[in-house]
Design a protein around this nucleic acid. Structure first.
Lengths: 313, 313
DNA sequence: GCGCCCAATTGGAACGTTCCAACCAAAAAC
DNA sequence: GTTTTTGGTTGGAACGTTCCAATTGGGCGC
């Protein structure tokens, strides 16, 4: 591998000058610049980001935690993060944790060692100490799409879950549904609890209580689209029809939700936009050497498709 | 941030000893080891991977190129790579390129600067020079699931596309189909061409030629499951029924393909296993400072579900 | 009691950058 | 003609590790 020094020798200047040419950090004579640039081209020199990082004490890398990359919503989140980050010269280290605390810890350790400049959490285990571990070591963290937190050092980009649940329940209620169930992977999803809370609150307002899905529910609200789609599958394999026998609502509006054979009623949240925002906040905080304190709530819109209908007589 | 030196001072030993304790690289007295370990715990020291990388001239990071993370097949590939890599202590830098040459070049530059130890390519643009650029700088590369290559320095983990296409065509042919079309995102997918070749060959064997989808095809073979699912959507929105009017076959067997409402006939290829293999090969090559020359072809199996049937009379 | 060996430990030189203070002409100011 | 300025350029000290050669201090053989 060619080094800065090699380029300097070839161009007949000092390493400092080469460094200045590359980073445009100081004045350098036109003629010298040309000579250095030629030397760079001839040697095919690529600056060593590792050495740079060591000296600069920044890795220009951020981490992102997703519970499941296979879920299109998280995939989109990851894509958005990757795009925004690389546009800013940051690399993205992805951890697919499945919300397993041990995997989360492994990721945290690896990232701390690699000195990531910040972390975006798209999902985590129920009582995860991931944020604390990172924050305590002065790594800025932003939560994307997974709700509030009581730690003021945490940045939050979220959608209005309570509002969404209210809209969903209103939609189902006005169709005539009174027996509503909620499905979610409680054990794992941190966000699940909060959506369930919003769901319960919206029910309570109408003097209803949630029931179990097997308890004759006429409508099922899922924690996200993939769970809704899986629920449809499960119901239909049991011989129940959606939406004739039971209505199903999702959350996220993944591209597939609009598919002709699915046509899932859901709530739209813009993963790409959220992740762009998250990266922006994170990078700015990292550069200024502080935590992200900003919080913002995105509006969501209910998209009624063909998995919701009046309950059977 | 605490450094090795801080730990050494606290434990009253030299930095070398601390280094030895951490990496188990030389003999150190039980009593000293305990003291050092206590100091590490007390300071919450995490070794600086950047400094380590600089000295060791290895980043312990690999890159993975996927055209579209949103496609569950690539998502699974990424998951598999991430899992296998982190088990070996490697970080994964993901590039979501959409098969855009410019994005590929950006990724290559960034990775070269970060001195990745190897790259896995899950998909790339048609005449991509990504492999060459990397190989020329002695970065080992393995192609996962995207076919052969004439460059002997390239590792290849692939499935038997030709065999798969033969099985698909045989299945459709024996159902009575004679007017078959192939859909693929030619412009982008590098792999597309090869599958199309296998398709054409299988047709030729039966004295058939491919026709356009709008030309009255009774069966459509898609380059992958997501394109198959999108094709079903498009056909059905046009009022055609699948499989009554036209049969559709996919490739990959993404989890969704088994969904009650989709039931896609497809070909199974194991992304997780392939990526595990790819990482193994890559890491071994990287450690031995050579290219990956290994090539292997995985068998695939046709899974007949409910999107294929006899053609209409 | 002397030399030896071996286990345990150590200092210092890399690794490839950045950054700062210092330097050097030549031009400008007086 | 001396001083000051200014546009360019430079060497060397970090950054936090690893690795190697060198050092120390017992214990052991004789």
């Amino acid at each position: 591998m060619t080094t800065l020094m090699d380029v300097a020798e070839r161009a007949g200047v000092s390493k400092s000058t080469v460094s200045n040419v590359i980073r445009g950090t100081a004045m350098v004579a036109e003629e010298t610049r040309a000579r250095v640039e030629r030397a760079i081209a001839e040697t095919g020199y690529h600056p060593n980001a590792i050495a740079r990082s060591l000296k600069a004490r920044t890795s220009s890398a951020i981490g992102i935690v997703v519970p499941d990359l296979t879920n299109p919503f998280y995939a989109q989140l990851a894509v958005g993060v990757e795009r925004a980050a690389s546009a800013l010269g940051y690399a993205v280290l992805t951890a697919h944790t499945e919300c397993l605390p041990s995997t989360e810890e492994d990721a945290a350790r690896a990232w701390l060692e690699r000195r990531v400049d910040g972390v975006i959490i798209g999902g985590m285990s129920l009582a995860s100490n991931l944020p604390r571990v990172l924050l305590d070591r002065d790594v800025p963290v932003v939560l994307a799409s997974l709700g509030e937190s009581d730690d003021p050092r945490l940045g939050v980009i979220d959608h209005d879950d309570a509002g969404a649940m209210e809209a969903i329940v209103e939609h189902l209620y006005s169709l005539g549904h009174r027996r509503l169930a909620f499905v979610s992977d409680h054990l794992r999803e941190h966000a699940g609890e909060r959506r369930f809370l919003g769901f319960k609150k919206a029910l309570k307002k109408r003097r209803l209580v949630p029931i179990a899905i097997d308890d004759g529910a006429t409508a099922v609200v899922a924690h996200n689209d993939m769970q809704a789609i899986a629920t449809i599958d499960r119901l239909e394999r049991r011989g129940l029809h959606v939406p004739d026998d039971v209505s199903v609502v999702g959350f996220d509006d993944v591209p597939l939700a609009a598919h002709n054979r699915i046509q899932l009623t859901t709530v739209r949240s813009d993963a790409i936009e959220m992740s762009r925002k998250a990266v922006d906040l994170l990078v700015r905080a990292a550069r200024e050497g502080r935590h992200v304190s900003h919080r913002e709530l995105h509006d969501v819109t209910l998209i009624v498709r063909a998995t919701t209908a009046r309950p059977p007589q």
